[in-house]
Amino acid sequence: MSAYQLNYLEELEAESIFIMREVAAQFEKPALLFSGGKDSITLVHLARKAFAPAKIPFPLVHIDTGHNFPEALEFRDQMAKEVGATLIVRSVEDTIRVRKLTEPKGKFASRNWLQTYTLLDTIEEFSFDACIGGARRDEEKARAKERIFSVRDEFGQWNPKLQRPELWNIFNGRIHKGENVRVFPISNWTELDVWNYIREEKVGLPSIYFSHERELIEHDGQLIAASDFIRLDPEDVVIKEKVRYRTVGDMTCTAAVRSGANSIDEVINEIKATRISERGETRIDDKVTEAAMEDRKKNGYF
């Protein structure tokens, strides 16, 4: 093998850095959507490498549902500080109050859907013209069809039938006033690629990605953290288990997996061995219909 060949992680990194730089160059007010989860942590790490030795030339934005894991929030603040980036946090709680939105009801009432309101308000407040997100095409069927530069109309809506052709490595970020672009630099990465990259680059992660003891309830075969955000019914039994999280979303809609994995190597081995997909195992919001993600994206979701 020639010395002048990149391995798969180096090639993915080079591509993602190229995309980050296109965003900084083509847009006036970009932002990076940062939740403190592994995919957006990877984005921040890539952005840092893309613009070194300068600081990341755009703010990090978190749409806080109020249902986040405290460990992820702590990590979010720490990482933003460490890379010297501006962190903007806007809360779904405020949107609900100001806009008099109706909170979803039920046992695992999720604010996932309501995030879109806060996101669109934040885009308007700061006049963001591009939002960098950590979505990957291997996550879900509708995402497999989305472009790396995904143009959204004034309502934040994705129109799958009117996507711009995306050829070679040429990204057309030209938009009309009021429109914005969602950019997905790690589109071509898989869950395992992200983990392997994190291992290779020694990127830090919130503690909940590793084995820890937690109080949970078991519902429909999924382990949900016993928090103030879910309704505990008389028949629910709170159990204590050693678990870790495979994805980090809201406490109300992210399920834990039983695990004793304390290191990245152990986590990677478990992911390699699992027979269940990331979203299937850990997201209770995608189970509703086959087109759940497609519908949310059409309404302005990430």
């Binding site: 798969y8 291997d138 069809k145 898989t190």
Partner: peptide
Amino acid sequence: GLRAEREQGITIDVAYRYFSTPARK
């Protein structure tokens, strides 16, 4: 991937798929 595709049994747009073997991604 999309609802119309499942309903009509056609592929509307380019979709990207990923798989790995020990040899390659």
